[in-house]
Structure formats: C-alpha cells, structure tokens
Design a protein around this nucleic acid. Structure first.
Lengths: 205, 205
DNA sequence: TTTTTTACGGTACGAACGTACCACGAAAAT
DNA sequence: ATTTTCGTGGTACGTTCGTACCGTAAAAAA
C-alpha cells in the first residue's frame, strides 16, 4: 500500500533515530541495523532513503546542527524579551552546556562527529554549527552593543572575547560530559568570567 | 629464540603504534591488525601482550595521558628558568593547543577517547589527564602566587579562573583541530584573556 | 638432560557489518 | 486497461573484525 510518502520527513525521522542511538551508545557503535530498529523500520528502508552509510552520517550531522541552531534560536527568543546583553550572552553560552539529556546528546554526538571529521574530508566539509561563525558573530555583536552602552570593562576586544567565551563554554561542556565537572561548577566558572568582562554589577556573594 | 623480553617495553611500543594509527586515521578505525602492522609485529603478538582489544585501548589511554603529562612537565621545566607566573601559565595553556603534528594527535586521540568514555564505564573510570585536576591545581597555585605578588587584577578567583582558562584552551584546541580556527588566532584569544586577568603590562598594539 | 615456561607465527571461526539483489503489491501514468 | 514507478520486505554475499586454537624453537628450571 504505497501511499505517496514525504521523503524529507522520512529522512528526518531516520536521522533522529540515528542521533538517539548515537547518544545512547556512542556514534562509533551505530550501524544501519541499529538505526533501522530505533526508527522502527526495516534495514532496507534505511538503505532506500540513504543509499549509503556515509550519506546517512552526513545527513545526520546536518540535521543535528540544524536542530542545535533551532534550539539556540529558541532560547534566544525566550530571553530576548528581557534583554540586557549579558543575560543574552549568558543564555547563549548555557544552551551549549550539557545539562539535560537532550543537550548531553547534542554535545557528545556533535563532538564525536567533529572527531570523525578530523580524518574524513567529506565530514570536514560540513559545518558543525549552523553557519560556522554565526554564534561568534552574534556574541561579538552583543559585546559591541554592550560596550557602546558602557557596560563593558575597558580593554575588552569584542571579537577575541567572543571567541574565548565560546571556546570556554565548549570546553566546560566536554568537562561535564566526561564527569570532570558538574554543571553547577561550569556555570560558576562562566559567571565568574562574565563578571570580569562586564562592568560593575553584582558583588556576587 | 625467546630471549627474555621486557613486557612493559613491548606494551609501550605497541601502545605507541596504536596512538600513531589513531592519529592518522581516527581512533574509531583502528583494529588490532592495524596496530600490529604499525608496530611491525604479528597480530598474535598484540594479542599476546594485550589479551583483548578493550585492554589495549585502556592501556593506550593510560599511556597517552602519561606522555601528555610528561610533555607538559617538560615544557614547564623549560619555561621554569625564566619564571613569572604569567609566562608559566601561558606555556601550560599552549602545550594543550594542537600546533604541530604531535600535539594534534594528542588532542584528537584524547578527545576521541573522551567521547568513547561517555558511554563506556571502563574508560570513564580512567582519567584523561594525569591526576584529573593536576593541571587545574597547578594553574590555581600559579594564580594565587601571582595574586600575592600583586600581578592579578582584583576580583579574580584563582580556582574559577584556572578552570575557565583550561576549558578555554581545550575548546580552542578543538576549534583548531576541526579547522575552525588557526593556531595564531587561538593564541591571540588566550593572550587577550590573560591580559584581562593579569594586572598592567603591555598596551599590546 | 629432561621438562616446563616464554615468546611468537599462522590460521581458522563465528559474528557483525555495509551493501546488493530479488520480489511484490499498490498507486500513478499511459 | 496496461504499464511503469514507488515504497517496502527479505535475504544473501563478501569482507572485516576480535578472538581462540594449534604449533614450535629456544631459554630457563628441574
């Protein structure tokens, strides 16, 4: 009974199954059969929608970065009503931290992809965050805006600071993932750093 | 002609072969046969010295973290003669950056291990840096020492700052690895951040 | 000197993997 | 009404992987 099927939708479902099993057992363990089982379809179907495993992996990465981008955007809009550049930046950095199960999956699978990409040109060609430097540009813009409002300490270079902030957040994320650090201590570190970037404010304890 | 052989030495040789092929083709691709070929021994020998792949992987991680620790220590001693806490910290953060081939391998293989450890209890039990928080402790001590010498800006918490610094360095490292950032820009970011942690000094450009 | 380890080679086995092939009912196109 | 295309299942093939088994020369122990 082949009623016409939306390929894009099916591919998305399968890609999400891929991400789920990758989050549970590690990206290196997932085979097409696992993806098929997780998606509740036959192995043949996975083959049908993605001819090869490489293509499935590639699409999975694309999908994951998109989802992540959406998550960030959503978080931004949610915090956007009560602005203040610092709060916005804080929110931006926090979504990257693996606090709940979903963000843990994001972080670990995305990082696994990154490690694959180190020796795989096809994956390396794909960006790991929607428009690679979009996040950096956003934070940079936010910092510039803050500087013009006189909220920044003198001597802070928005571009360099943005890069540092993002890198720190990523590094802290990995730390949480491997259990070296708790989410709370990670946010404390971030908070403390932001205290050193932004002018005045709270004597925080 | 079985002249008595130093097991520890052989195991080390094999482990280094493992690290080399992991660095070249990715940790996920290495099989026992690859390791054997790279080490110039037979598959049987790898089996002989490490009964199982899991044990080989485990030992490989241990060995890698040791090598990394030694590398850091060496760099520290090299910079130790011309002290100044800032120079020392800078050196410490720089060794973690994947600039040459060797450090690229360190970073990528170690990070791959970290991703494996996320869903593998046996690996998760092993630390990824010699004495997990040794680096953090060192940097913290250095910062305290700097503070007492009046070199730090006020309000800097040594412990939190150390954690942030290390996380930033790790994050920048990954950025370099995947080609999102050049080593030069990474050091620029680090430098800029240190400028904001340490008192006075250079008007830098 | 006989016996037991030690260090090592070769090879085969069972499982799992990605992929290719064959089949088939139903809808769309002709 | 016939033919083509689409969505899907099943299954088998070739490869590779980790591991286990068998054998054996030489050194150490007896």
């Amino acid at each position: 009974m082949p009623k016409r099927v939306d390929h894009a939708e099916r591919r998305t479902e399968i890609a999400e199954a891929l991400v789920r099993v990758a989050g549970r057992h590690g990206l290196h363990t997932v085979g097409m059969r696992d993806v098929a089982a997780e998606a509740g379809v036959s192995l043949r179907l996975v083959q049908y929608y993605f001819e090869t495993k490489e293509k499935l992996l590639l699409f999975g990465l694309q999908h994951l970065t998109e989802r992540f981008g959406e998550r960030v955007a959503a978080r931004l809009k949610a915090t956007g009503d009560t602005p203040g550049p610092r709060a916005t930046i804080e929110a931006l950095l926090m979504v990257a931290l693996p606090t709940d199960e979903e963000s843990r999956t994001f972080h670990s699978v995305l990082t696994s992809y990154a490690m694959l990409a180190v020796n795989d040109p096809a994956l390396a060609a794909q960006p790991f965050i929607k428009d690679p430097d979009a996040a950096e540009d956003t934070v940079t813009a936010l910092l510039r805006q803050a500087r013009e409002a006189g909220l920044l300490r003198p001597g802070v270079d928005p571009r360099l600071e943005a890069a540092g902030l993002l890198a720190m957040s990523a590094g802290l994320g990995t730390g949480i993932l491997v259990g070296q650090r708790s989410p709370e201590s990670a946010t404390a570190v971030l908070e403390h750093h932001l205290d050193r970037v932004f002018q005045g404010g709270e004597p925080r304890r």
